[in-house]
Structures are given as C-alpha cells and as structure tokens.
Design a binder for these strands. Structure first.
Lengths: 200, 200
DNA sequence: TTGACATGATACGTATATGTATCATTTAAT
DNA sequence: ATTAAATGATACATATACGTATCATGTCAA
C-alpha cells in the first residue's frame, strides 16, 4: 500500500478513514442515511463502524474534526509563498475545492458545533478568513461594502457548487476550481466601472 | 392579517400551508427532523400532519410541488416587461431569494425527483433557464465559456448563501438579494479587461 | 503453528419514527 | 342550541435505527 502523507494528514486507507470518507459523502447526499448505509458505502458492516468509531454522535464529531484538519492543511499550503491577501484568497478557494464535501458538511451540520473543540476550531478558522478578507479589502482588491459574512457564505456556496457540478459529471474537477475562482472573485472584485448592481 | 396573493399562489395560512412552510424550513436545517418535529414547528400535532397531508413521502412530494409553483410564479413575474435576457436573469435571481429555502429543498433532495411529475417540472424549469442563459450568452452579456450547468449550480448556491446569511441575521433580506446579484453576475459578466482567472 | 488482530455473523434489547384508529374537545356556521 | 368540521389526546402495531455482546472466520506476523 502506498502511503501518501501531506503534512499532517495521513491518507492511510484505514477502515476508519474509509468510514469517515464515506460518511461525509453519503451524509451530504442523503442526510437521513443510517449508520448501516454509511458502513455499506465504506464497504464494511455496521458492527465494524460501531467498533472502530463508536456512536453516531462520535462519527459526526470525527467527520467534523477531519474536515477541519483537511481544510486547515489545504489553506495552509495554499497561502504559502503568496504575499497579497487577494492572491492568498484565490489560492484558498482553489485548494478547498477538493475538500468541498468536508467544508459543506461543517456548514450543513450546525449540531456538531455543540462540541466545544469543534466550535473553537471553526471560530478560529472563521477569524483567520475574516482577517484575510479585511486585508484584501484594505489592499483595494475586494469591494469593501460587501460584508465578510456574505463573502464567507458565498465561498462555501461556490465551493459546493463546484463539488456538485464536478460530481454530477458535467465538469472536470480542475475546471470546477477555475470556475469557482472565476465566479466568486469576478463577483467581489472591483470593476473598472461600477458594479453589477448598476441597472439591476 | 394581510392576505397576499400573487397570481396562482394563495397564502392561505391553512394548516396545510403552515405544515409545508414548516417542513421546508425545518428540513433544510435539520434533514433528520421527524414528522413530530415538523408538526411542532407548524404549531400542530403529528396526528394532524398525517390527517392533512399523509405520509412522509407525500409530505416531501407536496413540499416539492409547492416549491416548484413558487419558483415558477416568481420567475414568471420577474421577467415580465424585461427584454434583455441578462436583465431577466438578474430579475429572476432577485425574485428567487425569498424562495431560496424552497429552491434549496429541491436541490438537496434528489429523492423527490423520483416522482415523474416533479421530474418533469424540474426538467422544464432547467430547460427554460438554460434557454435564457443561452440567450444572454448570445447577446454577449455572459461569458460563453462558462457551462450552463455551472451557472445554474452557482445560482442555487448564491441563493442559498443569501438565504442563510439573511436568516442568520447578518444581513437584511433586501441587501441579500442585491448581494446575490452582485456576486453571481459580477462573476459571470464579461469584464473590460480579461477575467478573474488571469493570474490565478 | 501459533497467536494477535480485524472483521463478519448473529442475536438481543431499547429507543425512536411512522402510520392508523378511536374518542374527546373546540370552533364556527346554521 | 345544534350540527359539522378541525384538531387534540390517547393508544396501538409495526418498522427501522441504534448500541452492545458473543462467537466465528480470516489474515498476517512471529
């Protein structure tokens, strides 16, 4: 077996990894999926899921923590070597597209925020993103009248659109990344003359 | 109470209406919500839900049909009196924001597509949207290299971002409409010099 | 071979969700 | 006041999901 390790995230293909991957994928498509469904998607039986992970609550928690790790790592290596906040933001969007499922899981499951550790991580993540957006605004690359909360919501939304479209087979994943950047930043970037709001 | 009637969609505040409204709202936030949860959100008991609507499957079907009606109506009156496809599209986005929940429900519940009537309606809706996008491309207002499927996915994504952000209290609903238009069409509109892809 | 380990098979009890039926209560119209 | 309609209260059966325990099987390493 080939072990691919990107910094701190081991893709071990262990049973636990398979289960977490299956969970985020299945739950995003069928939020009412049972643990049996998830186990089947991972190619194991339900008893194994319970043995390896535990209860449903623990599963959701592990999925969320894994999602946060992935996003952290992706963002971290994406901004490396880039100076302008705007360039860093664009890189982050592109880097997050492969993890759009994980990102969306966090966004769509507010119940996991009850966990203090997850809440803390999400808050930190959000804060770092806000800071970056503020920098990009200060550097004149993002329209300052657009609220950060809106930008973050749109970011997740566009990520999810990219993942959905790619998964539906309409678009290659690479193209989806490019389109996500195009769509999001074409929209929040200062235009030469006015904004799209003119004449709306 | 003020009765608002837009063409064919009566806001009767009947028990059924309250239940459908509660269902789309609750299920979007808690996809695992039970029928009891939905009934409670509608201010009735579960037995009443069963009496008025029927089984869970019938509930989902009714929610989907109602969503399609709402979207149809909103789009229909939005394009009225506008000639350019681009203007019609912008109007549609703005008009759909108040129905983003319904829109998102359809997008997030592929199981209801099994119903032939719903599948047919969705297909028709999609086709009309594609035609409109094609016209806007032909008129030179939308970047032609962006796939229609991407544009439709982004449209739903941005709608949902608008609804989420508005519901979270960060932004007023009116502002959310404007921001949705700004974000989406700022991104897919031809820029004076190059696209946001440059330098990505 | 032996033993440790992971997984499957099976069974069990419990909890929750679902759908229905019956009767009581309220409300509005006549 | 009386009736009809809508809703609630209650109970019931059934199905599904969940979590755990026990034993069997397979696999890999020492």
């Amino acid at each position: 077996m080939i072990h691919i390790r990107i910094m701190s995230i081991p893709l071990n293909n262990t049973t636990k990894d398979k289960l977490l991957e299956a969970a985020v994928r299945v739950l995003n498509m069928q939020p009412r999926a049972s643990l049996a469904d998830i186990a089947e998607a991972a190619g194991v039986k339900r008893v194994t899921l319970h043995r390896v992970i535990g209860t449903r609550e623990e599963l959701l928690r592990d999925v969320a923590l894994r999602a946060l790790e992935q996003m952290d790592e992706a963002c971290y290596s994406a901004v490396k070597g880039k100076r302008k906040a705007f360039e860093q933001l664009k890189a982050i969007v592109g880097a997050l597209v492969p993890y759009a499922d994980s990102c969306h899981f966090l966004w769509k499951n507010p119940d996991v925020w009850d966990d203090p550790e997850i809440a803390r991580e999400i808050k930190r993540h959000d804060q770092e993103l806000c800071d970056l957006i503020d920098r990009a605004k200060a550097e004149g690359d993002i329209l300052s009248f657009i609220p950060n909360s809106w930008i973050i919501a749109s970011l997740d939304a566009v990520l999810y659109a990219a993942a959905s479209t790619a998964k539906a087979g309409n678009i290659a994943t690479n193209d989806a990344s490019a389109l996500a950047i195009q769509t999001l930043f074409g929209g929040i970037t200062k235009k030469v003359k006015g904004t799209a709001l003119a004449g709306a």
